[in-house]
């Protein structure tokens, strides 16, 4: 695994999540450059420069993914949450990589 892989995946996964039916926002899990922000700012439908939304830890067969999302209230939030999880797993497996050890998806806002 190259460094380029580690840098690209969070961005890719963020894009994947944004395209999931029912997801309206992907929130930051932590800033890339901690000094840029005093606290983790809520990214509402905009993409602050230097901010990874989805966090990826580990590499190779030991990847752990964490995402915070906001969903529309039309469907049950658990359904959208499961759909978001599946989209992440499908994307990783789809590019030929091993299945992640853990995928954490947290719904932080409904509606």
């Amino acid at each position: 695994m190259t460094d380029a892989f580690a840098d690209d995946l969070p961005t890719e996964l963020t894009r994947v999540l944004r395209n999931v039916e029912g997801v309206h926002t992907v929130y930051a899990t932590r800033p890339v450059v901690p000094t840029v922000l005093a606290s983790v700012a809520e990214a509402v439908r905009r993409e602050p420069v230097g901010m990874h939304q989805v966090s990826v830890e580990g590499s190779g067969a030991d990847i752990r993914i964490t995402a915070n999302i906001g969903v529309f209230d039309g469907e049950p939030a658990p359904d959208v949450c499961r759909r978001a999880h599946d989209a992440i797993v499908d994307h990783i497996v789809g590019r030929g990589d091993p299945q992640p050890v853990a995928v954490t998806v947290r719904v932080g806002r409904v509606g």
């Binding site: 809520e42 719904v107 932080g108």
Partner: peptide, 30 residues
Amino acid sequence: DQISVQVRAGRDIPVAHDVPTAVLSITEGA
């Protein structure tokens, strides 16, 4: 811009899934 809504997230309320590697939840704040 500088306040974090996530400090009000509170506890994680689990959401079930049939995949063992899934750790899904909705926050108390939500």
